[in-house]
Design a binder for these strands. Sequence first.
DNA 1: GTATATGCAAAGCATTTGCATTAAA
DNA 2: TTTAATGCAAATGCTTTGCATATAC
Lengths: 138, 138
Amino acid sequence: MPAAPLIERLEVRPWRITPQRRAVAESLVGEHVHLSADEVFTRARAGFPEISRATVYNTLNELVAMGEVLEVRPPSGPVRYDPNGADRHHHLVCTGCGALFDVRPDGVEALRLTDSQRHGFRVDDVEVVFRGRCATCP
Amino acid sequence: MPAAPLIERLEVRPWRITPQRRAVAESLVGEHVHLSADEVFTRARAGFPEISRATVYNTLNELVAMGEVLEVRPPSGPVRYDPNGADRHHHLVCTGCGALFDVRPDGVEALRLTDSQRHGFRVDDVEVVFRGRCATCP
DNA sequence: GTATATGCAAAGCATTTGCATTAAA
DNA sequence: TTTAATGCAAATGCTTTGCATATAC
């Protein structure tokens, strides 16, 4: 079962909902959405024209810190923001054009580190990135 | 069987070996080495004091393009360079301090994308990142 | 000899910061 | 009323670029 929409999850948190923050959250709705901060800024201005870049960055960083949004670092270019941070999933990236999809591969639960590989870490999370070429990149 | 040392692999390529490039390659020897461009710059100056930052960046980018060195993008901070690009392996990252280790987890071969998950891609590579807290980060 | 690598300094881009102002609870 | 969010503009950090010079092959 997919988690509730981002904006609804935010309403039940101790976090001030301002028009700016609402506009940022609404920019991020949907499946397979992986916008850069600048794309979020452009979209957010549609809902709140006087929003500033600084506020977009502030808000995105807060959403990431809350675990509601996931940062994805593509092979090149700026960080992208994935609104399904609450839903465990992975990524498929084109090394040609940077196209990015969410995937839920089989076999993830089989991934294991041995004690000696763990280097004393407490492991919280596994992220899997499949790299390749999309249908239109040679 | 581990691959031959980086500098030896480079000698058999159609790639001019200059003192600067040699100094960069020699900065990258060893297991569990994940230096930033600036750390490479510092080390490379030990071998060739008049090397410039631009040359370090140029050289690292070429090594990445050749597949000899792997770029690793930590949760924050600059790109790091991993000399074992020729040896398939994965990473364990501390979300506190950024500490980074190579790992070879069990179960990677079980990772599978279904046709519908493949989105028309030709998948070349899978990278697994374990995230957690190292022994000294709370 | 010729193509290619280098160094320098300047430009580029993404992101963060300081601080006075404004608005949410 | 009080605490926190916003906007602006400047600063930062990392990386790339343009171009004249030097160098490996």
